[in-house]
Structures are given as C-alpha cells and as structure tokens.
C-alpha cells in the first residue's frame, strides 16, 4: 500500500542542514496496521506527511497504492489525497467555526460524488456523536473532537489512514476508543499508519516499527 524507497528529507537551516529522514525504506502492505514509534524529533511526522503527499522528499520515492506520489502534479496529489487518504492529527485540527457535521463534510470538498450530510451523520452516529451534531468544537470534549476528526478522515472511504499521535491529548479511556475505531477501519480492509511515542498502539498494530534519527531501527 505504502512504500518508502531510500527516502531522505533534509531541511536547510541557518545552523546547517537538518536530516529529518535518512535513507529510510519501509513497506506497508495493504490492510496492515503499522505503528511507528520513536522519540520526539526522530522524523515520525515527516514520514507521515511524506506518505500523505504533503512533503516532497529530498531523495527517494514514496509510492502509495501503486502511485509514485511525487511524480504527480500538486493538483493530482491533492485529489489523490482527498480520495484515498484520511488524516487524523494529535491536535484534531477542527475548523472552529464549523459544527461537527460541517467539519466532517469539509473532507467532501474535493471528493468525487461529494458524500452528503446523510453519510456524515451515519458515520458520526457510529462514533457516538449524534447528540453533538450541531455543536462547534469549542463545545466538545477532547475525545469527542478526536472522534469528529476520525469521522472526517473516514468520510470519503479512504484506503489509508495516516494518524499522527491521535491519542496524544486524550485520557486512556478516550485513547482506547480511538484505537478501537481505527481497528474497525483496519478490520474492514483499510490500511493504518499511526505514529506515536508511546506503546499504547502496540496492542492494536500488526507491526511496530522503531524510528531513531530519521531511520528505521527495528521491526517487531
């Protein structure tokens, strides 16, 4: 599903070059649930964004679902992302002036067929958010916000979910609920690539990959 071939990402800074990814190679098979674990600053988020077509690597190739992402134009990559990839972020990144349903429907902006409110409400019902449909993010708990973000990620029936420390701001109960929903997606045939610096995802993942200093250290 996702393949990294000798991917490097170097950032030029005033203090010199910073190597965020260092000749990293990794393959994520279709339908796998992979947890990538490592300390802060090891390049986990960079890896995730590269997989999402949002970060052009300095070297190497990133292939998602058979497509070499960075040979596509920016527009093609954006459309690809809208149709096949769902993102879940640590800080939820909900739009503050939209209610729950509208936040979920934001994912439909570029999607073919444009899933409507009915699909959004069905997803939100499965995530236990029916009583909160017309509430804005400010009125939601952290767990409810993250579930809204998950619904947004699932709206277009993606093949791949990229989750960047999705439980980093949640208590254990809410974190377990988030993992449960990701597992359900996985069991339905979806591929999950989750980055985390704790071990909470280990119980749900098919594979755990350790990252250090921009490269893969160990596979479990």
């Amino acid at each position: 599903m996702v393949r990294f071939d000798n991917v490097s990402k170097i950032y030029p800074t005033r203090q010199g070059e910073v190597k965020s990814l260092d000749r990293l190679s990794l393959e994520v098979r279709p339908g796998e649930f992979i947890a990538i674990r490592g300390p802060s600053g090891c390049g986990k988020t960079t890896l995730l964004l590269a997989a999402g077509g949002m970060l052009h690597p300095t070297a190497g190739t990133v292939t998602v679902d058979g497509h070499d992402l960075y040979t596509l134009s920016a527009r093609e990559r954006a459309q690809f992302r809208a149709r096949r990839i769902g993102f879940v972020f640590q800080m939820f990144h909900l739009v503050p002036y939209l209610n729950v349903v509208e936040n979920v429907l934001l994912a439909a902006v570029q999607a073919p067929g444009k899933p409507g409110p009915a699909r959004a409400e069905e997803l939100l019902a499965r995530l236990g958010l029916t009583p909160r449909l017309r509430h804005t993010p400010a009125a939601l708990s952290a767990g409810e916000r993250q579930r809204t973000a998950i619904a947004r990620a699932l709206l277009n029936q993606p093949k791949l979910i990229l989750a960047d420390e999705p439980t980093g701001n949640l208590d254990p109960d809410n974190a377990a609920e988030v993992f449960q929903h990701l597992r359900e997606f996985h069991r339905a045939g979806g591929t999950v690539l989750i980055v985390t610096h704790g071990a909470a995802a280990d119980a749900y993942a098919d594979r755990v990959v350790e990252m250090r200093s921009g490269s893969i250290q160990a596979r479990q």
Partner: peptide, 16 residues
C-alpha cells in the same frame, strides 16, 4: 494558518 494546512491535507487545491 492551521485551517489552511488542514484544508490542504483534505485535498483542497490552491484555487480553492
């Protein structure tokens, strides 16, 4: 800034 970043992540192009 963040809102724009999220819209990009969701597949919004430059025109939008």
């Amino acid at each position: 800034k963040l809102e724009i970043g999220v819209l990009r992540a969701l597949g919004c192009g430059s025109g939008r």
